[in-house]
Amino acid sequence: MTPFYLFAAIAVGASLLVIAQRNPVYSVLLLIASFGALSGLYVLLDAPFVAVIQIIVYAGAIMVLFLFVVMLLNAPHEETPYDEQVHPLMRPGPMRLGAVLALGLVVELIWALEKGAESGRFAGGAVSNVGAIGRLLFTEYAFAFEVTSILIIVAMVGAVVLARREGAR
């Protein structure tokens, strides 16, 4: 039970810190920590595949995208006197929207927990068996797997071509 409390504490703590930051880049980085803890919880639930996907897709790809967007939009540095006095979350706009979203989530959670008894169970652990998925990937989907590698090469070459600094050749 100890690992559960450890991961849960990290997840909850990091999530709280995400919304308490003034700098959006810190928020994104803390969200990664929260996702890491969540994937630990998935491991405890005997869902190793979901745990790995959580790390690769959410903590890896999607958060990089978040970070990219935050930097691309050049989020304003909150340094005016108004910003110093009033925390971003306490401002009228975000507060109302956040309250509505949070309320929606609470309702959704209650609904899910109530229904959980009848619908929430998945059949067996085979769904999330990393070995079975790997075997399928290298037998039935071997060709698709190889084509994906070409796809990644193309994307890599493209990224380098477009991002290379002028005169670095």
């Binding site: 084509v147 070409i150 796809l151 193309v154 994307a155 070459v157 493209g158 071509v161 477009l162």
Partner: peptide, 10 residues
Amino acid sequence: LEVLSIAVYV
């Protein structure tokens, strides 16, 4: 489709 599209975007 993705292989050819990404190459053509670049």
